[in-house]
Structure formats: C-alpha cells, structure tokens
Design a binder for these strands. Sequence first.
DNA 1: CATCTATTTAGGATTTTAACGAAATAGGTT
DNA 2: AACCTATTTCGTTAAAATCCTAAATAGATG
Lengths: 88, 88
Amino acid sequence: MALQETMKALSNPVRREILMMLKTGAQPAGDIAQHFELSQATISAHLSLLKHADLIREQKYKNYIYYELNLSVFEEATLWLKGFTNEK
Amino acid sequence: MALQETMKALSNPVRREILMMLKTGAQPAGDIAQHFELSQATISAHLSLLKHADLIREQKYKNYIYYELNLSVFEEATLWLKGFTNEK
DNA sequence: CATCTATTTAGGATTTTAACGAAATAGGTT
DNA sequence: AACCTATTTCGTTAAAATCCTAAATAGATG
C-alpha cells in the first residue's frame, strides 16, 4: 500500500507511542487516551490517521471500540528500510 | 540516537527519494537537485534535515559537497519496526 | 424510550513544514 | 586578488499538522 501514509503516520511521537501500547494487545480508545495528557478528541484524530494508514484496525465490542495492530503494513515498511542496509 | 528525527526525516517523499538516489553511491548536492523540479535551496534544506537526522553524511571534494548514506541509523529504525512483527 | 458512556466530528487557534527567489558564503581556478 | 561555480542562508508565504473545547453520534442499559 502507500508507503507515504505509513511513514507519515510513524513520524509522530504520540502515534508511535500508541502503536507501542498496542503491542501487548487490543485496547479501547478511552484507555489509550488516558495514557496521554491530551484530549480524547486529539487521540481520536491520531487513531483515525493510524487507521487510514492501515497500521491499526478497529473492532467493536459492547460499548467500546478496541484498536489493535495490523502487522502486515509494518512488514512492508520494514522491508523498505531493510532495502538500504541489506543490499550490497 | 533520536528515533524522532529519523522518522520525521523519512516521512517526506522528496527526502525518501533522495535517500534512494544515494543507494548507488555518493552524489553532489547539485546532481541530486537536478532530479527534482524543486529549487536548489529547497533540496539543500532537505539535505540539511537528512544530515541532522544522521541519515546521510557529507564529504567535500573539489568544488562539490558529496552526500552519502549513513547506514547505522537505518539499522536502528529497522530494528524499531521489526520489534512489532518479530516478537510474539 | 430515556439516559448514560464511549467516541467522533466540527470549528478554530497555533505551530510546523515545505517551498521560493535573492543574497551570502566557500572553495577552486586563473 | 578577481572570478567562477556550487551550495547554503535569509526572509517570506502558503499549506498542512496538531491541539483544544464544544457539540454530535452511536450503542448499551435501565
């Protein structure tokens, strides 16, 4: 998919921290927001951008929206980067 | 070093294209600029940012400033990304 | 169905980024 | 020293990103 979207999404520290939070498993938007001193609305916008970049997926359960990593796009980005160090 | 600088630098398509141009070896700033329909000043600013992110190094020779990749920082970024897909 | 809770959307202020042309600098070369 | 040539720095402008508060939406629950 679009490397541009991926890289743009990864360029922001808040979004990277969100991704790291999701390493251990899916979490609802509210829980994610509580880890930051930022408004819920701001975190929601970051989540939306990560979703558009396809780095995360959402999954509804009860009253919550759980977000989780979508690893395939990470693999693409990793490959792009490895292209610099691997080849002779 | 600072992952923030690295990711910020990689988030821009012009800068990524510059990096790809340097895969095949060092090139002077002027040659790099010629591959884009952007002013020399703009490319110079991109090169400066890449240099601050430590993704490239400069090397003076005759009248030119040659830029070349600095692979160690690519490795750090690759490791960070692989941290998402590798671990269980 | 009325209400509560979780989350997003809208609108707006502030900061950052990307670009340009023009001027400045830094080295070579004559 | 004077002059090229390559590159950067300066000053400015326009567009995009980030954040906030307040209002809207969407589901679950009583």
